[in-house]
Design a protein around this nucleic acid. Structure first.
Length: 422
RNA sequence: GUGGGCGUAGCUCAGUUGGUUAGAGCGCCAGGUUGUGGUCCUGGAGGCCGGGGGUUCGAGACCCCUCGUCCACCCCA
């Protein structure tokens, strides 16, 4: 008999990991909603054209798109990221600006899976449309930093750069192309290919033979227009004032073509793997226009959920949450009493679980232990006859009997004892 | 897409130059303890040794193909 398993690059997230995922998204939601951001839930697939605007030279578009034709003959794609969807939504609904939104959910890229990289991967992120103010750039970066701090991460390094305005970027690209072409023979073969498509991305090469040439390459900072330079300086000044540590990385160009002005990236220095970038973002002031909307400033970031959790593991922070089961009912009289007690306690909003199939007391106690419950409620034949129940706090050897009529109150008392102890 | 490592029980892995009925630890189930978990002891269940083909008297071991997985490159979160 044949069986099935998950497709390459996808996997089941089981509890307790899944509970940790949800907690991760909850923490992110609280950080950004307290800053005035509202949740947006775009569709998981969209018209392919939405994503083609990410840049014709980007790998995300040229080789990683999960696109297909639906039964209606429409060319659609599973989203590779959510920024383009948010901009499309902006054009479609024309909300008043500033439009501050956040999101969480899966994205899809057809890549070869490896450590920290999956074909279906989750991100949390935020976007702001309609604001040019450099202090927004600082706010956005600060929120990401605040989120990492809330998780307990300490070994996160922030890199920032400015790619200038569209004109700056073009001028710099030309200069860069000329520079690399004059050193063509010294570049790796891969970089020579990259050069023809997008000279900026050569700066991103990690190949050893390219490093010396890259180190002496022209710097974007020398090609910024006065307004772009002023913008960048204001961002850095705000980061300084907020005491947010950063390094300026001239080579930080990022993979998507739409970035303008401020770009940034968060790297976990606790990770040893190839992929240590746990989050990144930047300005994309032309993207809304590309999608048929009015000229609108935009900025945002996306944080990789998987990688960030890997970083949490490496730093031994942000553990999976505890169970919500407070009481576990052990009933050796057939299970009927457990049904009643569970229902009573759950109606009172006390987390309660039980065993089924009339298993032995030993087995049920073992299940109670594994459930993470604080107390076991034991009902055997003696208790049934006497109209009582035994309450056994799991972390002590003591236990006591109460009348069934007093059971709820007694458990509520255990709840308050537990809460005050924590 | 390119290169390399690895696929043996639910999990982590042993398995000697090919040689009888394929092992351990953990986990699970049961018993010791006919009313008590976390420690301990005993026992049990659970494997077409990823799949297909080949070499051989004989393959979990060797060869080919294939699928999966991990790592690295490319690129990205």
């Amino acid at each position: 008999m044949s069986s099935f398993s998950t497709s390459p690059g996808t996997r089941d997230i089981l509890t307790p990991d899944a509970a940790r995922w949800r907690k991760f998204q909850d923490v992110f939601a609280s950080v950004v909603e307290e800053a005035g951001y509202g949740l947006i839930i775009p569709p998981i697939f969209e018209d392919l054209g939405v994503f083609l605007r990410l840049g014709e030279a980007t790998d995300v578009v040229t080789k990683e798109m999960y696109d297909f034709e639906d039964k209606g003959g429409r060319r659609v794609a599973l989203r590779p990221e959510q920024t383009a969807s948010v901009c499309r939504a902006f054009v479609q609904h024309r909300p008043t600006t500033p439009w501050k939104v956040w999101y969480a959910g899966p994205n899809f890229r057809y890549e070869k899976p490896q450590q920290g990289r999956y074909r279906q991967f989750d991100q949390v992120g935020l976007e702001v449309l309609g604001v040019e103010d450099p202090y927004l750039d600082a706010e956005v970066i600060a929120l990401a930093a605040q989120f990492y701090a809330r998780l307990g991460l300490k070994e996160v390094q922030l890199s920032v750069n400015s790619l200038g305005d569209a004109g700056d970027r073009q001028r710099f690209t030309d200069v860069l192309r000329a520079y690399f072409e004059s050193h063509l023979g010294e570049l790796s073969e891969d970089s020579q290919v990259t050069l023809t498509k997008n000279p900026l991305r050569v700066l991103d090469s990690k190949r050893r033979e390219d490093q010396a040439i890259i180190a002496n390459a022209p710097r974007i900072r020398d090609y910024l227009s006065p307004t772009a330079a002023e913008h960048f300086a204001a961002v850095l000044a705000a980061l300084d004032a907020m005491n947010i540590q950063y390094v300026i990385d001239d080579r930080l160009v990022r993979g998507l073509d739409y970035y303008r002005r401020t770009t940034f990236e968060f790297v976990s220095t606790a990770l040893q793997a190839a992929h240590t970038a746990i989050g990144g973002g930047g300005r994309y002031d032309g993207l809304v226009e590309e999608l048929g909307g009015p000229a609108t400033a935009g900025i945002g970031f996306a944080l990789g959920l998987d990688r960030t959790l890997l970083a949490c593991d490496a730093e031994n922070v942000f553990p999976a949450p505890n169970t919500d089961v407070f009481a576990f009912v052990v009933d050796t009289t057939g299970g009927y009493e457990a049904a009643l007690v569970c229902n009573q306690l759950r109606m009172a909003r006390i987390g309660t679980d039980r065993a089924f199939d009339n298993r032995s007391m030993k087995a049920q106690m073992k299940a109670a232990d594994r459930s993470g419950a604080q107390v076991a409620i034991i009902i055997g034949s003696n208790e049934l006859e006497a109209g009582q129940a035994v309450i056994r706090p799991m972390n002590s050897g003591e236990q006591y009997s109460v009348n069934r009529a007093d059971l709820l109150a007694a458990i509520q008392n255990e709840v308050s004892k537990f809460q005050s102890a924590n």
